[in-house]
């Protein structure tokens, strides 16, 4: 597992996570959620592209992919809830570590959505 130690590694992990969730919900037959995940991926890609600020690229400590163990084989309702809880935790952990406001805001927004889905 790799460390989430840069702006790009965090944003890319989030982008790839949403792509994985898109496939996961397709498999689960939950097409609404699949569509939302794809939209999130696209928004996060835009944020990574538009808000990387070279003068504020600073090392980030204390985050690792290993802390986020997504079980994407279980497509049951309980499985989906666990995935959403894990996603919410990931976004809650990484958003405050970003020193770029737009990125922090988008990660928070997507995280809140996952937290909401986890409670549904």
């Amino acid at each position: 597992m790799a460390s989430l130690n840069t702006f790009g590694s965090i944003m890319t992990y989030a982008i790839e996570l949403e792509a994985r969730l898109h496939n996961y919900y397709h498999q689960a037959g939950n097409l609404d959620r699949a569509k939302i995940a794809d939209k999130n991926r696209s928004k996060l890609e835009r944020v990574r592209r538009e808000n990387v600020t070279e003068i504020k690229l600073e090392p980030i400590d204390g985050l690792d992919e290993a802390n986020y163990d997504f079980d994407l084989s279980d497509t049951s309702a309980e499985g989906q809830q666990r995935v959403e809880s894990m996603a919410a935790r990931f976004y809650a952990d990484v958003a405050p570590k970003m020193n770029v406001r737009e990125a922090e805001r988008m990660l928070n927004r997507v995280g809140k959505q996952h937290a909401q889905f986890a409670e549904e």
């Binding site: 840069t6 790009g8 600020t53 003068i55 690229l57």
Partner: peptide, 12 residues
């Protein structure tokens, strides 16, 4: 350079 730095350069 790193991919983040390259993205930052492209953005600037």
């Amino acid at each position: 350079k790193t991919i983040d730095e390259a993205r930052g350069e492209a953005r600037r």
